[in-house]
Amino acid sequence: MSALEIQKVRKDFGNERVLKDVSLAIESGEFLILVGPSGCGKSTLMNAIAGLEPVTAGEIRIADRDVTWLTPAERDIAMVFQSYALYPSMTVRQNISFGLEMRKVPRAEREAAVERVADLLQITALLDRKPAQLSGGQRQRVAMGRALAREPAVYLFDEPLSNLDAKLRVDMRTEIKKLHLRLGTTIVYVTHDQIEAMTLADRIAVMRDGHILQLGTPDEVYNDPVDIFVAGFMGSPSMNFIATTLEGQAGDYRLRIVTEGEDALVLPWPASRETPALAEQVGRSVILGLRPEHFSEEDSRLSGMDEGTPLSARVSVVEPTGADILLNMPLGDAEVTARVGPKCRVAPGERLSLRVDMGRAVLFDSETQKRLA
Rank of each mutant, 00 (worst) to 15 (best):
R10A: 14
F13C: 03
N15S: 14
K20M: 05
D21T: 05
D21R: 01
S28M: 00
L34N: 07
V35K: 06
S38E: 01
G39H: 09
S43D: 03
T44D: 07
E53G: 00
D66Q: 04
A73L: 10
E74C: 01
L86R: 01
Y87F: 15
Y87W: 14
P88H: 09
M90F: 15
V92D: 00
N95H: 06
I96W: 09
F98R: 11
L100F: 08
A108W: 04
R110H: 07
R116H: 13
A118L: 05
D119Y: 02
Q122M: 10
D128T: 06
G137A: 05
G145I: 00
A147D: 10
R150D: 00
E151G: 11
V154H: 04
F157W: 09
N163P: 12
K167Y: 09
K167G: 01
D171Y: 13
M172F: 12
R173T: 04
R173H: 07
R182F: 04
G184P: 05
Y189V: 03
E196H: 05
A205H: 08
V206G: 01
Q214G: 11
V230L: 12
G232S: 12
G235S: 06
P237S: 03
S238G: 15
S238E: 14
R256D: 01
I257R: 09
V258R: 15
L265S: 09
E274R: 03
P276C: 10
A279P: 12
G283H: 06
G289R: 01
P292D: 12
E298Y: 15
L311S: 01
E319L: 03
L327M: 03
T337R: 13
C344P: 00
V356T: 04
A361C: 09
F364L: 08
D365C: 12
E367F: 13
